[in-house]
């Protein structure tokens, strides 16, 4: 049974259609990223899956439950890391982890939780004294306090500096290695690429592409490109485009074309300064998919 199954999901707020018909399946043990710009419908979708919102129409099954019913058996197996929440500043990290873990049937010990998220040295500090990044790590710890089978991470690293993001990614990697199913939302391409097994791009309340980070949007079928700095005083005998001060060659037949390029370079005494060969990045694909929004 898939961990999450969504069929024809829609959600309207008054006249605003935030979600306009989404179908999605997330398998058990999978790390799935919902990638999209702000306002695309990511949070609305995830909050319906968490049971915080009701759908306008469509069918949603999460771990065999309808999340809208708010059943305790469902909440017991799900961990939620929300956007824009806080934890009582008056409590210590250990107290918060103990209290919020109190109602779950499976509980991870505070000591183990702070090790997973890297808050060991702050376990007895008041939450009001933590930095922004430390608070977010505490929220990750609170999300897994009940040793959940499924974890929702709504924009887990928004507002982080680059090193804090890398650390959060390694925490999420730890969770993956524990065998958890994870659904995360993000508007960072590199986050989806680094963390997820599969990605769905959502824009304007619809899923516009779905696949692995490698194949998303037909990326594996797109031609690679070779490019190098434009050499002075020589003419280029093969098909090419000029982008700024670079020569770009679309590689529809890579082996033959690259041979042609390097053969020409040797003959003409061109150094091929700053040579690069690359496929379109996930970012290129993402921007192309969401440019209308």
């Amino acid at each position: 049974m898939p961990a999450i199954e969504i069929r024809g999901l829609t959600k309207s707020y008054g006249e605003v259609e935030a979600v306009r018909g989404i179908d999605l399946t997330v398998e058990e043990g999978e790390v799935f990223a919902l990638l999209g710009p702000n306002g695309a419908g990511k949070t609305t979708t995830v909050e319906i899956l968490e049971g915080h919102r009701t759908s306008t129409s469509g069918e949603v099954t999460v771990l065999g439950h309808d999340p809208a019913r708010g059943e305790i058996e469902f909440q017991d197996r799900v961990g939620i890391v929300l956007q824009e929440t806080s934890v009582e500043a008056e409590l210590t990290v250990r107290e918060a982890l103990t209290i919020y873990g109190g109602a779950y049937s499976k509980r991870l010990e505070p000591q183990r939780l702070v090790e997973i998220v890297g808050l060991n040295e702050k376990v007895d500090a008041r939450i009001g004294t933590l930095s922004g990044g430390q608070k977010r790590r505490l929220e990750l710890a609170l999300g897994i306090v009940g040793d959940p089978d499924l974890i929702f991470l709504d924009e887990p690293t928004t507002g982080f500096d680059p090193s804090a993001r890398r650390e959060a990614w390694s925490v999420i990697d730890n969770l993956r290695s524990l065998g958890k199913t994870i659904l995360l939302t993000t508007h960072y391409m590199d986050e989806a690429q680094n963390l997820s097994d599969r990605v769905a791009v959502i824009a304007n309340g619809l899923i516009v592409a779905e696949g692995t980070p490698e194949t998303l949007g037909g990326r594996e079928l797109s031609a690679s490109k070779a490019s190098f700095a434009t050499p002075a005083g020589v003419s280029v005998p093969f098909d090419h485009a000029i982008e700024g001060d670079r020569i770009v060659v679309e590689l529809t037949d890579p082996a033959r074309q690259l041979h042609e390029v390097t053969g020409w370079a040797l003959e003409a005494g061109v150094d091929l300064d700053d040579l690069s060969v690359s496929r379109p990045s996930l970012e290129d694909v993402y921007l192309a998919l969401t440019e209308d929004t």
Binding site: E50, G51, H52, Q75, V78, E84, T85, V87, Y104, G146
Partner: peptide, 17 residues
């Protein structure tokens, strides 16, 4: 205001408790 109630509602703690 602080989202604490929302966090609590996502846990298996019964609202009345």
């Amino acid at each position: 205001d602080e989202g604490i109630l929302k966090r609590v509602r996502g846990t298996p703690l019964p609202a009345w408790i």
